[in-house]
Computed example of a mutant assay.
Amino acid sequence: MLVTLENVTKAYHAGGQNVEVLSNLSMSIQEKEFVCIVGPSGSGKSTILKMIAGIEETTSGNIRFEGQKIAGPSLEKGFVFQDYALFPWLTVRKNILFGLEMANANSVLKKKRLEEYLDLLDLEKAVDLYPSQLSGGMKQRVAIARALCLKPKLLLMDEPFAALDPFLRQKLQLELLRIWNAENITFVLVTHDIEEAIYLADRIIVLTPSPGKINEIISVSLPRPRLRTSQEFIQVRNKILDLITPLNLLVSSYI
């Protein structure tokens, strides 16, 4: 297994008491797998990503990457944030190369990686622009290119398309699958969009309301490319909706 979570609990201190966000959660992620995590708001989806990335620590339990306990961030784990997290004072070129600059990579490697990901993500014409001059979709492609430039074994994505319109969102979902196939790395993506999870994932981790626990793990065996209007697709969607939305709640409370 590439990643394992063993009886992980996470609590925050707020208002003079400890608030448990995740409770005794165990799961695993295989190499080259595409995993999506869904669940109600506040179920700890983003917290799971941050702990795998080494940005946050567990309160109890262990998280292991390639068998070793995670002690902090590493170049083998890339992270793409919902709000892009681009540096506004740097061009697309310098944003993409930022990680390699910090790693003191040589100029030959930087040139090779830059050309590779400008081509893969169709960013050649934007290379000298600043983030303020880019659309939301282009900003997200730059953020993905910056993460991939370090050739991570694992790419963690926290609702990367949440702020985009539905047409652009579906376009970038296709690009993400193309990148996943081309790069042959492991993806873990948090999303509120159930259809997005079904369209992308090999497996979907469904969490309970806070404190988050594993509600169910659903294997998606539908062949790719997946047709969102197919009966099989709709059946998986309805199953997840039934798991996430108790009968006494409206679907809108989840969205």
Rank of each mutant, 00 (worst) to 15 (best):
L222F: 03
I234F: 05
G39W: 09
N184Q: 13
M138S: 11
R113E: 15
Q17G: 04
P246E: 08
I240T: 05
V38F: 04
L156Q: 07
S23T: 01
V8Q: 00
F233G: 14
E216Y: 00
A14H: 09
I55T: 03
L177S: 03
L154N: 11
G136R: 03
T91V: 11
M157K: 02
L177D: 00
V220G: 04
E31I: 12
L86C: 10
Q133M: 10
Q82A: 06
A11Q: 12
N104A: 14
M27G: 01
P246A: 13
L168I: 15
G16A: 15
L227V: 12
P211G: 09
F87N: 09
A11T: 13
F187R: 03
L22G: 13
R228L: 06
I96H: 02
R146G: 13
T59G: 08
S23C: 07
K69H: 06
G16H: 04
G72R: 08
M157P: 03
K151A: 15
S230N: 06
L189W: 05
G16S: 15
Y117R: 00
I244D: 06
G78D: 09
D128I: 10
L168C: 02
M138W: 04
Q133R: 14
T91E: 05
A145Y: 01
V92W: 02
L5G: 06
K139V: 10
P225R: 12
L123G: 01
V251R: 14
N95V: 12
L189N: 02
S46D: 11
T186L: 11
S46H: 04
L176Y: 02
L154R: 07
T9G: 08
A162W: 05
P131N: 09
V19K: 04
L97T: 14
A197L: 12
R224W: 05
S221L: 14
Q140M: 10
P211H: 11
F34R: 02
E20H: 00
F98K: 09
K45C: 13
E76D: 14
K151N: 14
V190S: 04
T58S: 14
N184F: 00
R203F: 03
L2M: 13
G61F: 05
L250R: 15
V188P: 02
K10Q: 05
T9W: 00
L154W: 11
M1F: 11
D202M: 07
F81G: 06
L154M: 13
R141W: 04
M157F: 10
W89V: 11
L148T: 06
D158G: 14
L164Q: 12
F87S: 10
Q235F: 01
E232S: 13
A14V: 11
E20F: 00
M27Y: 01
L118A: 07
G44Y: 01
Y84F: 09
